[in-house]
């Protein structure tokens, strides 16, 4: 398709109407930090581009009842500096703060991070560990999907042509909960994650693991929950030896999962995971309040 129109939207209604009208012919652009590259490489060729980056209704971080909601067009810098996200969930701010560089964080959005469907999207493991839900809107409908069910394949999410991701939401932190995030990249800035891990824990005073959720990046076709490791930890007391065992177990799972991958992955990630996972879990425990 030849590009015919770029529309800078100001209102959510306008976006949804344009999508209903143009469907497959249209694509939304937020920060453009993935989109523009794909456009230039001719991997996408929309006829209509709808710019949502300045739609105020998509740009917010707010408390809503028991939930924290983040609008899809909220930028990483805003998330990184948010006073609404609690210290216990600092891991989410860390994840946003680990994206690319200041320039990328000033443009890139959480909605773009999710919808682009990259396995190495940095905020997604944190959101998965928080048990986040995607709020999807179209002209006549609003629906909610658990984020872990939102992915179809590498680069593909469950959105109809007339839908956008409106927001993500998750339960606000409670005493005893904490979120830790660790990214392993090849350098300290502008690095694509080799591995990223977010761990959510809920413990009592005796570090008994009442609940745990682990989100991982760059370990599968898209960011996923590591449910086997979660099951291993749940109900156990998080002493060092238990953490060590869980770490070994995680490595074993990856040895199997990545067996068919190129050497840079299969000969590295099952081992490197151990340090990353331990650090993420310890970070989570350190922010539990």
């Amino acid at each position: 398709m030849e590009l015919k129109k770029v529309i800078k939207a100001e209102k959510l209604d306008e976006v949804l109407n344009l999508l209903a009208e143009n469907r497959e012919r249209a694509k939304v652009i937020a920060g453009g930090t993935d989109f523009v590259i794909q456009l230039r490489e001719k991997k996408i060729a929309p006829e209509v581009i709808i710019d949502i980056s300045d739609v105020d209704e998509l740009n917010f971080i707010r408390k809503s009842g028991e939930f924290i909601e983040i609008g899809a067009a909220t930028k990483f810098t805003t998330i990184k500096n948010s006073g609404i996200i609690s210290d216990a969930f600092k891991g989410l701010k860390d994840a946003a703060g680990h994206v690319g560089s200041p320039q990328i964080r000033n443009l890139g959005t959480v909605g773009g991070n999710i919808c682009n469907g990259s396995p190495a999207a940095d905020t997604v493991p944190a959101l998965l560990a928080l048990g986040a839900v995607a709020v999807v809107k179209s002209k006549n409908n609003t629906r909610e999907v658990p984020l872990e069910e939102f992915y179809l394949d590498r680069g593909k999410v469950k959105l109809e042509p007339d839908e956008i991701l409106y927001a993500v939401k998750f339960l606000n932190s409670k005493p005893g909960q904490g979120l830790g995030f660790v990214k392993l990249g090849l350098r300290n800035a502008l690095a694509i994650s080799s591995i990223s891990i977010a761990v959510f824990v809920e413990t009592d005073n005796d570090i008994n693991c009442k609940d745990v959720r682990i989100g991982s990046g760059a370990l599968a076709k898209f960011p996923i929950r590591e449910k086997e490791v979660e099951a291993f930890l749940k109900g156990k007391t998080l002493h060092e030896d238990v953490i060590e065992e869980a770490t070994e177990f995680f490595g074993k799972i990856l040895e199997q999962r990545l067996a068919g991958r190129p050497p840079v992955e299969k000969d590295y990630k099952p081992y490197a995971i151990k340090g990353v996972f331990k650090e993420a879990l310890n970070k989570a425990l350190s922010v539990v309040c």
Binding site: S101, R187, N188, A189, L190, A191
Partner: peptide, 11 residues
Amino acid sequence: LSSYIIPTSMD
């Protein structure tokens, strides 16, 4: 240059 990487000022 996203995969052939050189150090940044952060490194």
